[in-house]
Amino acid sequence: MITVLYFARLREGLGTGSEQIALPQGVCDLDGVRALLIARGGAWAQELAGNKALRAAVNQAMASGDAPVADGDEIAFFPPVTGG
């Protein structure tokens, strides 16, 4: 299982801030997880689409699409940050 977190606009659009999902065989990076979520359709396809400005983290460090993902990892998807 991996933990997937969503923040800000994404959390609202998807209607959830966190979930546990089983990592299917063959899914081994961030892009793979994103594709898995987009395949759910509806808001998932809309919010996580490739043309949306999206950032991601693996185990609380900013990561790009090819970052490896393994069982037990904490992944997060969120919009570009706007703090300060």
Binding site: F7, A76, P79, V81, G83
Partner: peptide, 24 residues
């Protein structure tokens, strides 16, 4: 660096409703 790298998000309330602030 904090402005572009630390995970914070702002949502502001305006007369036309609440909106998420876009990164600049």
């Amino acid at each position: 660096y904090l402005k572009t790298r630390a995970p914070f998000w702002k949502k502001e309330t305006t007369p036309s409703g609440a909106r998420w602030v876009d990164a600049r």
